[in-house]
Structures are given as structure tokens and as C-alpha cells.
Amino acid sequence: MKLSSELAAFQKRIGHRFAQPELLIRALTHGSFSSPTREDNQRLEFLGDRVLGLVMAAELLEQDRAASEGQLAPRFNALVRKETCAEIARDIDLGAVLKLGRSEMISGGRRKQALLGDAIEAVIAAVYKDAGLDAARDLILRLWGERIAQVDADARDAKTALQEWAQARGLKPPAYVELDRRGPDHAPIFTISARLPDGTEAQASAGSKRQAEQGAATALLNKLEQAT
């Protein structure tokens, strides 16, 4: 099977030439473009998520042999979460070669975090099935690059840090309340409030609920730090 010029260029961007090009095509096929004769990338995404996790866990253990599980876990989460996967996908312009249905294209699917994150995991699985674990590991380490070495040694997402702050003081976990949603369906902006039981709160806005919640948690942690 001969790949299009766009997919051939994409192979060069990721540094892997497929012996089975159909795997790459499947990895880039979203469910909105699938058909009875055209498989989508969901099963590959499921596998790729596990391959990414294995490779990243092994690499973190190798890079810091003295780190405890409690230190490694937040670093791992920071590197494999959907936001990071989507950033990697944008770095290699994966959105440009995604195969999407018309409605998904119109709604801005090539820029959606969830679609990009799922697709890069599917590409990892495609490389794994095409050439084995060593090839998949090389791909992951190449694409993630300096992110692995530079991940914050105390990396914790803000929501986890805020919950731990509340628990240490015998408080109930903070609540996250959606205050507003505006903008078109393909590019919404959410405003979220992070709120403690005593009414202390902070707000943030972002293009996804998760990002807005993290931003609100960060803002509230900063407010609490300034108050002490």
C-alpha cells in the first residue's frame, strides 16, 4: 500500500517508516470517518495508552533510581495525561492528517484536545504493532524528548494538591462549580469556581472543564498561600 504524500511526510515527522502502512491509516481514522470496511482508531488508542504508560514508567524509574513511588506517580501523570499527549500531537501537526467525518471537521475536530490525545496514542500502538516495543519506545522518547527530563520533580496537579491541603486540615474535599460556558460548541470557554467548605473560593477560565478546574485549584492554592 502506497501512502499519500501527506502521510509520507507525517512518517518523516515521527521518525518511523511503516512496513504496514494500513496501521498508520487506521491510527489516524476517527470514529466519525469509519465505516463497515474502514476501522477507526479506538482499539489502537486503547493499546497505545498502555504502551505509553509502560514506557514512561520504565523511563522515569531509570532516570531517578532513588525516587519513591510517591515522587514518581505525579511525574508519570504529568507526562501521560491527555493534555500532554495533545501537545505532542500538535508538535508533529497530527491534526493535519487526521481522517474525520464532515461534521467533526466543521466543529474543529483537528484542534480538539481529546481527538489529538487519542490519536497520538493510536499512533504509538500502530508503531508497536508494526515494529515492536523497542520501536514504540524510541518513538515515545523521541517525541516527548526534554519533557521527560524537565518534568517537575514535585509534579502534582493542582486539584490533587488542593485536596491534600484540605484533608490535612480535616476539611471536606473542595467542590468545583461551573459558573459559565460561552463560545461556540467547537471552542467553548468554561469558567469554574474551586470552593472550600468555609466558602473560600477562586475562579479560572479555560477551553476545557479539566483545564478550568486545574486553573481554579491553582488560583485557590495561591490565595491560601498568601493568606498564611
Rank of each mutant, 00 (worst) to 15 (best):
G109F: 13
A204G: 07
V97Q: 01
Q113W: 11
A194L: 03
Q167Y: 03
A206M: 10
D157T: 02
E178F: 07
A131W: 11
D152T: 00
A131T: 03
N77G: 02
A212D: 10
G207E: 15
Y176E: 01
T160F: 01
I106W: 11
Q163L: 04
G132S: 01
A96I: 07
G199M: 09
L221G: 02
H186L: 07
A114Y: 15
R81K: 12
A168D: 02
Y128R: 12
E87G: 08
R182L: 12
G183D: 13
K209I: 09
A78N: 04
D138S: 10
A135S: 05
R195G: 07
G101S: 04
A216K: 02
A136V: 04
Q167P: 08
T160H: 00
P184A: 07
A153Q: 09
R110F: 01
V97Y: 00
D91L: 10
P188A: 14
S205N: 12
Q214W: 15
R90T: 13
E83H: 15
E87S: 05
R156Q: 04
D138I: 00
T200L: 06
E213N: 14
T160L: 01
K82P: 15
L221S: 08
C85F: 05
G101H: 06
D93T: 13
A96E: 05
I106R: 14
L133W: 09
I92R: 09
A166S: 00
I124K: 04
T200I: 07
A219F: 09
I148W: 06
G170E: 00
G199A: 08
L98T: 03
E201T: 03
W165Y: 05
S107Y: 12
A194Y: 04
I189H: 11
A212E: 13
S107V: 12
A89N: 05
A217E: 03
E121N: 09
A187I: 13
G117V: 04
